[in-house]
Amino acid sequence: MTGPRQPGEAGRAVTVVEPTEVTAASGPATAGQVIEAAVPAEAAGATATLRVFRGEAGQDTRFEDFAVPVQEGMVVLDALHWIQGNAAPDLAVRWNCKAAKCGSCSAEVNGHPRLTCKTRLSDLDLAEPITVEPMRSFPHIRDLVTDVSWNYAVNRTIQPFTPPADLPQSEWRWQQADIDRLQEFRKCIECFLCQDVCHVLRSHETERPFMGPRYLVRTAGLEMHPIDQADRRPYLKELGNIGYCNITKCCTEVCPEHIAITDNAIIPLKERVADRYYDPLRWAWRVLRGRLPELPVGRELPVFPGGQPPAASADPQADGSEAAGTSPPERRDEPS
């Protein structure tokens, strides 16, 4: 398959389908013949028809069909690469690692938000064309590429990790048990599939912005950090609008890293927000005593001056008081 080839001359097998007629059958047989002429060796085996969303923002978009020879173990991204190399060199696709590690290749395959590098053709019904569309919740750029810069803008509004000012890193100690939770959140590869599928971002125009599941996950990773001092609950309630999430769990369903987004990040954050704003007992206390009770949240530090871990401490009571002795300054309120 070397030597010059004109795109559009051979190997290109295009059928244009109006976007509205997604399910209309459209002659993959003809397409297959064209390919066969160009690539005899591969056309001997099975072919799959990929119905790819094409076009540039602001112009008419369409679906084009490509007949792709199927190899064993092929994923959708391989098929897209085959199209780039043999039929449509200008097909816009984002990808980097091809190993489900970078989160670049997100798209909607047969309507399901997926990483294309992890979606095997053998798991799809090859009798019908496979539709590949860009992530629909974001502004379209070209073909399968969308403008995801909004996500980065949201990220900038989250107060970053805020360790206590008066404790050098050399004093920090915590146990694996303290961070198992966080490490789940930090597995996120920022594929934005959860942002794409979340119906609040996808189907609704809200009066105020919604930060979206990805950034709820990130905030959870910061809020539950054993040493972080910031209180992001006012931000979550007032600016991130966590209340827009109705815990319908689509984000969890699509996450390729299998992060339990709703159960482990969003609901615990909703509970933390409730701690501060909606707890009936605290409300009663405030009515009775005219002030807020002290909250235990964030008042302990996993720091043992002199490097004494709790396990090494002889008296189990002692480490509790040690921790109390190094209480940080009050939690900071609303981030600037």
């Binding site: 780039q84 060199p89 200008d90 097909l91 816009a92 750029i141 070209r142 073909d143």
Partner: peptide, 10 residues
């Protein structure tokens, strides 16, 4: 490399 500059991997 035909077909324009916008996100054209070719």
């Amino acid at each position: 490399a035909p077909n324009g500059r916008a996100y054209n991997p070719g």
